[in-house]
Write a protein that binds this DNA or RNA. Sequence first.
DNA 1: GGACGTGGGAGTCGGATGAGCAACAAGAAC
DNA 2: GTTCTTGTTGCTCATCCGACTCCCACGTCC
Lengths: 349, 349
Amino acid sequence: MSNKNIGIKDVAVAAGVSVTTVSHVLNEVSYARISRETRDKVRTAAEALGYGPNRLAQALRTQRTGMLGLVSEEIATTPHAGRIILGADEAAKARGYNLMIINTPGSASLESRQADVQALLERRVDGILYATMYHRNVELPDNLGNVPSVLVDSVAIGGNITAVVPDEDGGARAAVGALLDAGHTRVGFINNTDDVPATRQRLQAFRAMLTEAGLDGEAAPVESEVSEVQGGYEAAKRILSRGDRADIPTALFCYNDRMAMGAYRAAAELGLNIPADLSVVGFDDQELIAANLYPGLTTVALPHYEMGAWATEHLIDAIEGKEDLSLMALHPTILGCPLVRRDSVAAPR
Amino acid sequence: MSNKNIGIKDVAVAAGVSVTTVSHVLNEVSYARISRETRDKVRTAAEALGYGPNRLAQALRTQRTGMLGLVSEEIATTPHAGRIILGADEAAKARGYNLMIINTPGSASLESRQADVQALLERRVDGILYATMYHRNVELPDNLGNVPSVLVDSVAIGGNITAVVPDEDGGARAAVGALLDAGHTRVGFINNTDDVPATRQRLQAFRAMLTEAGLDGEAAPVESEVSEVQGGYEAAKRILSRGDRADIPTALFCYNDRMAMGAYRAAAELGLNIPADLSVVGFDDQELIAANLYPGLTTVALPHYEMGAWATEHLIDAIEGKEDLSLMALHPTILGCPLVRRDSVAAPR
DNA sequence: GGACGTGGGAGTCGGATGAGCAACAAGAAC
DNA sequence: GTTCTTGTTGCTCATCCGACTCCCACGTCC
């Protein structure tokens, strides 16, 4: 049906009016005074020809493309990027925008990132979303400042760009709280070794929660390893094989779901049943892992979808002049990390 | 530095030449005769101003946007989409193209898909990649025919559009072959219940391999369940609890990694050690699962990255007139599924 | 003769491109 | 040696891509 080369001009001819009129009608220009009959003629003709506007021409003239650039790190290696993209795509689509996506390796140089942004700029995207693969501090290419931009899942070194990040503290508190609520008094923390905000904030929240519950937060067992399954296994092994039986934790808070997966294996090898002998809670809510472990892993969800959507909403607001991003740039916006209850937490024996 | 509103015009003024000359120089137009000095002047001026072409204006004039549309199902719910996107993005970037991505729910209606394609068409993408979340037969929106298009990971009902799909048969043969090579003579198959090409082809390959090896392929145990962890668990439980001890398989080929994960649990409950008592091979190579199970799961990788890249390469070839897609539309192109060896296969006792 | 009600002309966004023009050199004709 | 062709080199003009939009032109009716 819809052949591609029908322009406003063709519609004008078909309807027997000028292109100006067609434009007025189709865009419902407020000050245009056009009779109902003419309007109908135009609409009918447009419909019949299967007319669709050439967004390029439109954009050239109006200086608005209706496109958002999204530069994302490691699209494929973590499932997280997918959820950010999804959140952004749905929010964008809802407001009539589309996404241009560029992938960049986590290891990319600043110049290469700058080139990515440049590509987006040349295509005149109305704004840019800059997403990282995990919550951290990033150095941004300076040409990012040329259009409204929002950072997703990280904050800029040097600040002053609007950013949205997960509530590490609240998430960790929810996780530890679930353990405490179940009645545990001896809980350990299996932490990551990377120097990222999450490592520090989760540890701090862990200790604080225990202390606030009247336990000795500073003395609670903490073991750090690389944040993978193997690291979780080793850390759990250590933490669960301490000298005095009465010192061994009955609950473990793990830095992420992968490490929790390792803890599951350690528990199995030690003959510990989850959750009867040992309660475990993770972090990330990676569906593939958390929902598929046995028993299902109670964990804390990172709001990737929500961050993508939030960033997109506010970026569009800024583009449309409904909001001033610079006002929000002072402090990153923090989005909640809800607890997802499955079956790995129970009361201690 | 690079302010955004510098056009070819500004460069022309700065260099003291006409815009035509600037255009000629910057695009290295072959028939343009311009002295070295002038060329240098122009380049220097462009550099100094931080000039970047307005791709919209360029596209409007040349009828080439250098953009590829990618409509992908369920970007976030499966990690597969991410790898297709990555393959497409890298291939596109290598040839100077960018990707416009639109997500569509697997359940989207034909009209909604058509609207997605329409959005891409209005932005005048040079071609479209249409990716599904798993290998299957899809009904395509008819406006897809308006630009060169390639189907990724599925074939069209009614055919005649170029498509690229995984080699189900070869992959399944590699998986079963690994088991046979290890010396197993009693191997079972845990299959999916969905009516998709993979279900049929893998089963057929399974039986054929056994028969070719001199075993009774038709009599080999096969259990079908929904293709999730739980289904794999149940199917494995059944297959491993058959009447006669001497009939119980010593090796299992699982429809996918999630089902294999279920088989791991069933084995553990039955006191079967992997791989000593039971060898297992999966399908999909979902990193999060396959590499993180203990022991690491030997599996078959789906070539998502490769399919994305292949589709993009050929799409661009078609766009640039180097190739005729209709010649390839007769049969889908099949890409290999390589075996990924980990530690879940060993010789039977 | 203003005020409406209707609608069209033409310039514009930024860059691409075929046609054309000036300047100068080499060769041809005388 | 002078003048005229013919050819090159070097660069510019004008137009176009498709839609938006400011401003003007009609005809009517009070």
